[in-house]
């Protein structure tokens, strides 16, 4: 057994999730939060196009015939998640650039009238979330379609969606807390932190359900999940994902929400916990990609 899809694919899976998650964060804070959440909404929009663009570049590098990539857009293969996924990420990336433009400070908006742009911003914010959910979850379907025991897990698209939302929110928290310009207010960070804590809890539950279902499934599937919980991927799973990526940031966020930290420590804790969520999210993609290929049917 060798690895066909390596780190480049992991990077793509991670960055696409971060972009989709940051986009949804921006859309929802705009639609539901309005002016009070302007800073996190803006940062979500400003971040969103970049991780996925980087991921797409990396994806191109992974192709055996990169100059043939346009073939993806000459057809729609309805049975191939990669085919409809490619169309989804194409439209998502284009729209995310348009959306970014709509969030630029007024003096940088050369084209368009301020009022019309504001309207378009809200219109796009209502459409893009659907596309974002597609971008965040189709990668799970993509792995589902490849007949491998670990990837047969039906909860994989849900895991990827929740992980994408969680890392997206974390990316927005991280950037809007660390920046000197347009730094998020405490109220904004408080809400996002609450959402992120909920998402982490949900992700823990999905992981648990996946493992229980997997371990109760056929021998090959049980062995595949075994490689994660006590086999060669145990360190990554328990320490890097469950420990540093889920439990530690959840505890930090929980204590922060209960105001256990002095004011001086609030910002560093916010930045630290959101970084850990991103760190853990990367290894979720890593472990699924690698363990999925190193385990097989027997």
């Amino acid at each position: 057994m060798e690895i066909t899809w390596g780190l480049l694919i992991v990077i793509y899976l991670f960055t696409a999730g971060v972009s989709a998650g940051a986009m949804i964060t921006s859309n929802l804070t705009l639609l539901l939060g309005g002016k009070d959440f302007e800073r996190v909404g803006r940062w979500g929009a400003l971040i969103s196009p970049f991780p996925i663009s980087f991921g797409l570049g990396v994806l191109l590098l992974d192709l055996g015939s990169p100059f043939n990539f346009y073939r993806l857009f000459m057809t729609l293969q309805v049975r191939s998640p990669m085919s409809y996924g490619s169309w989804a990420i194409l439209f998502f990336t284009l729209l995310s650039v348009v959306y970014l433009y709509l969030w630029l400070p007024q003096k940088l908006q050369i084209v368009g009238e301020a009022k019309a742009l504001e309207q378009w911003k809200r219109r796009l914010a209502k459409i893009i979330p659907f596309l974002s959910v597609g971008v965040a979850s189709y990668t799970g379907l993509l792995l589902n379609a490849a007949a491998r025991p670990l990837w047969a897990a039906p909860l994989l698209p849900v895991l990827f969606l929740v992980s994408a939302l969680s890392t997206g929110v974390a990316a927005v928290i991280f950037v809007s807390a660390i920046t000197p310009w347009q730094r998020a207010r405490q109220g904004e960070l408080h809400l996002l932190t609450k959402v992120d804590a909920l998402l982490i809890a949900l992700e823990c539950f999905i992981l648990l359900a996946m493992i229980v279902m997997g371990r109760l499934s056929s021998l090959s599937v049980a062995a595949a999940f075994g490689s994660m919980i006590y086999g060669q991927f145990a360190f990554i799973f328990w320490i890097l994902i469950v420990g540093l990526g889920l439990l530690v940031p959840f505890s930090l966020e929980y204590m922060e929400l209960k105001e256990k930290f002095s004011v001086r420590w609030t910002l560093p804790v916010t930045i630290g916990s959101s970084f850990l969520v991103l760190f853990g999210g990367f290894f979720v993609r890593y472990i699924i990609t690698y363990a999925g290929q190193l385990t097989r049917w027997f």
Binding site: T4, W5, P66, R71, A146, A147
Partner: peptide
């Protein structure tokens, strides 16, 4: 001529 070398089929073959 249509293959882009994405290697999806390679991972999909049990």
């Amino acid at each position: 001529s249509k293959c882009i070398g994405c290697k999806y089929c390679i991972t999909a073959c049990p």
